[in-house]
Design a protein around this nucleic acid. Structure first.
Lengths: 199, 199, 199, 199
DNA sequence: GATGAATGAGAATTCATTCAT
DNA sequence: CATGAATGAATTCTCATTCAT
């Protein structure tokens, strides 16, 4: 089914274009026309793939979540021991600040958009689910670590929350002040702190 | 004889109105007219106090930072021992999620706006300075704790970063999913984790 | 397949509409919406062809200069003898007061707008060039008349200035007081005076 | 009645301020507040002396006409012979281009404003009367010249029209292109042409 | 399916004017 | 009288979206 593949590819191209444009100009300042230009298609064509600008952002968000998931899968492939998983996760997370910087700018737009509850607010639901899912994954790692005798932790889910919150908070801080701290140094420091707090 | 007006008070009233309106509708969806209505003044009057909508957001951000500072001063008044300071700080921080919820919504707008560098981008600079200042304060607490024999910590500044990042990340998560965790439980858990990581 | 439009024709239609609207209400009192309505298009469409209201005026000015040029070319076609050229020119000029009355109203707006130097002030430059060009043309006629033994004139350029200034001044006066003088009578009188001053 | 004198003086000060502001920014771009600032009074005070912005322009126009009249009276004082009067008038007129440059900018605004007939349009009537009056004066000079045997002229009023139109046209041209011609040279040339055309 | 010309709802901002002091 | 804080009508310009081709 080559036509379907083609459609899928074009959709992805639009999303990539949207990401770059939204990241550099901000969701509200970016024009659909600019996204179209970046995707090398006509303005009207976007509407063949997405119903509206907010929906495009939501789709982009979903797309980004998927790419992040792939990124982590890749980085954590074959790693078995919970402490190691955590270490690699943190390293991957902090490394992503630089590698996926545009993502984080778009995330800020998502946060700003998802904030106010509206007609269903799919964006907010999507955000929530993504968070839940991440916490779930991380909680499982911590639990596995406890089960395997690596960690000691009475409330694994709360610990997972701490870890993820820390990563998000650092991302935000780093985004607005890349000189605030050294990413490599921070990776080491954070890993040590997290592992120590679980021992 | 010209009408005498407390310009400072009126300015503050507009800022309070802007905060509520921006928080509930989002910066971009909110109209200046709505802010004016909320402040019970005419549309044009806002421009006697602020030069533009973005500048109003920036001023609001500064206003909010000031109020948060006062809030923390109040909550930490008279507390001397570093571990206690940290505990009260964390309690105050998590309590502020609920108490100052509108602030956090506006912060999301600020993050989205501050992201893209424009004419100087005062917003970004203001954000950066506020962050630096918070980190400085927290670092000093950790250092005092080390000096007083309460804590052990080789890189107080990085520890301060961890703590602040964690708070911010939790705020964000809680904002979009108030059921994600119980605030009181989290306060205890976070305090324990932080204090343990410094012992 | 995109809609094919004769952009040039549409542009001209907007300019014609703008001329009528500006002429009847004045540049500053006319709304873009009125121009659009007169051109039977949507408000936003004007901005597909012109970047701003002042730019529309400038474009209109250029358009009018072109039409005036065509008008004179037409009126003077095939006339060879310098005295005859001058006579026909003056007749055409005074006749244009009535025929192109809207033009002159718009010229008043142009004069008022072009006055103050701003970002380059294309309007002023355009005005200057048009004037220069007219003076050049008229000077050449006078010179040809001198060369052909029809006229005696030591400073043809200054003479050309007199003639053109006289026409413009009369236009202005007639515009605000059509009863000030009889156009036909004035045409004869002016022609006689000009020709006598060159003999 | 010192109070009345004071009122009159203040009114004149506002008019002088308005002239400078209107001349430099244009009637429509100038703000009442700027006029007030230039007159060193409060914004509201203008309305104690003038009922509206258009009325201020109209009053200013009247004020300027008066000053011009005084200027010419002064320049032509004691001159009796019609040819000399004409010569001095033309010299004064062209000299005024430089000396009273702001006047001419404001005149452009007046032309643009007076153009469209509205509720009575006092401005237009004022303009017309001023023109009539000038033509009358000039006609009388020509007639006196004819009577005195200095000139030969069958239609003195039309001749007066030519002269005045020429001056106005030159003013306009010079205003937008001060390099178009040399004022002194033009004065001589114009005087010679005018006197010759009347001989 | 793709396009981009056309659209008009919508919002920020301006500024002449008013009027309480 | 003079003032300048307050106002809101008015207008430009933007841009997401539509739809004829």
């Amino acid at each position: 089914m080559p036509i379907v593949v083609d459609k899928e590819r074009k959709r992805a191209e639009i999303l990539e274009a949207a990401m770059l444009v939204f990241a550099s100009k901000g969701f509200h300042r970016a024009k659909m026309e600019e996204v179209a230009a970046a995707a090398r298609i006509g303005k009207g064509t976007i509407y063949e793939y997405f119903t509206s600008k907010p929906q495009l952002l939501q789709a982009l968000h979903g797309h980004m979540l998927g790419k992040l998931k792939d990124y982590y899968s890749e980085k954590l492939k074959g790693i078995e021991e919970p402490p190691e998983i955590l270490g690699h996760f943190l390293a991957a997370a902090l490394a992503s600040f630089r590698e996926w910087e545009p993502f984080f700018y778009v995330f800020c737009d998502v946060w700003a958009e998802a904030g106010r509850a509206e007609q269903q607010n799919l964006l907010r639901m999507q955000l929530r689910e993504a968070y839940q899912s991440s916490i779930d994954d991380l909680t499982r790692v911590v639990e596995a670590g406890v089960a395997g005798g690596f960690f000691r932790c009475e409330q694994p889910r709360l610990a997972a929350e701490h870890i993820l919150a820390c990563v998000d908070g650092l991302a935000l801080h780093w985004l607005y002040d890349p000189d605030a701290f050294d990413l490599e140094e921070m990776t080491g420091s954070l890993t040590r702190t997290v592992l120590r707090s679980l021992s």
